[in-house]
Design a protein around this nucleic acid. Sequence first.
DNA 1: CGACACATGTAACACGTTACATGATTTG
DNA 2: CAAATCATGTAACGTGTTACATGTGTCG
Lengths: 200, 200
Amino acid sequence: MSVRQSLLAILAQGPCYGYQLRHEFDRRTGSVWPLNVGQIYNTLERLERDALVSRGTADERGHVYWEITDAGSLEVERWLATAVERGQATRDELAIKVAVAATLPGADVAAVVDAQRDASSRHRDVLRRLRESGEDESPEGLARSLVLDGMLFSADAELRWLDHVQQRLTDHPQHTLALELNPDRPKRGRPAKSIDAALV
Amino acid sequence: MSVRQSLLAILAQGPCYGYQLRHEFDRRTGSVWPLNVGQIYNTLERLERDALVSRGTADERGHVYWEITDAGSLEVERWLATAVERGQATRDELAIKVAVAATLPGADVAAVVDAQRDASSRHRDVLRRLRESGEDESPEGLARSLVLDGMLFSADAELRWLDHVQQRLTDHPQHTLALELNPDRPKRGRPAKSIDAALV
DNA sequence: CGACACATGTAACACGTTACATGATTTG
DNA sequence: CAAATCATGTAACGTGTTACATGTGTCG
């Protein structure tokens, strides 16, 4: 939903045409994430379908300006007022992968973690270089560094977690984690009233 | 791709039927991420379409067992040997949101960050309680705590970043970040040979 | 019996991604 | 002119998500 919402938010600032939206998105997010132009038009059509924007007529230069509707403005307000919900549904590809690999008797978790550590470390280096190159006091530069800082914080956390996993793997070798298939066949029918939902 | 790959990896351990796969996925990932049963069958059909699994005949109890193919096993090996690539395409919803809000003259970034801080903090608390409840030395418990640790590391990084943003916002008030629309109309045609692609 | 979990499946949709087609415009 | 960007769009596909239909078996 990020692309959709960002484009809508940018349109809240004033009418834009498709190609312009890409520039605005790039400027504001530090040109870190490439955004295919086709997706812009795609997204605009879907926003129009949902009555959040309306397509204006092309001007003399052929630019098709899109305008946000009242419903669209409300949606932007709602978006800005609502926090990004993490955790309930947000699946983390890496966490899943490591967990599955760790519980798979046939897999070598340590190797997986090692390989990932290398990749993540290289990735962090790239981010650091990107962050330091083009130090800039312009709004664009500040926005860019903000985004890159976020990615750096994530990369650091990822590496710390990988080290942590490695440590725990030496404490608990893989065979203590490995899970056989189908340990107990589930019995059909009504269960013995699960005592879940304690938290939350 | 995480669901698809995990299910395939589990099938690499031996044939399973659909409902069983959900149990296995839940066990191995600590029951942290709910997985709709329908998606299992959906995914299995797509894996079959790609010739990575094959559908067996139903047994006496009506269970339809799915078996991994040779191509599927290769794919699992490839998956385990290849690191998760972060950064080039992986867009972070929160980073995008904050960056866009910060460059939007009409938005109150500080409020956005504050609200997110609250939500993220609460989320971390929930994770901590989940992590501590049911301390368990079983393989399931260990896998679960591994996953929860990962989410906790992420949550910590997120909160640190939000604090960092808040700090930078006091140094640079929003008007130094705000970006007007369309500051210079791009000129059509060939540009003056961009000096990009320095890094990487 | 009724509720609930077990179990399989179908259909539709959402967002994101990419490949492709088409043309105008400007610079070397 | 040729190349590259600007600019608009279309079509197809991929994964993930959800709602729904259908039926079985078990426990209270």
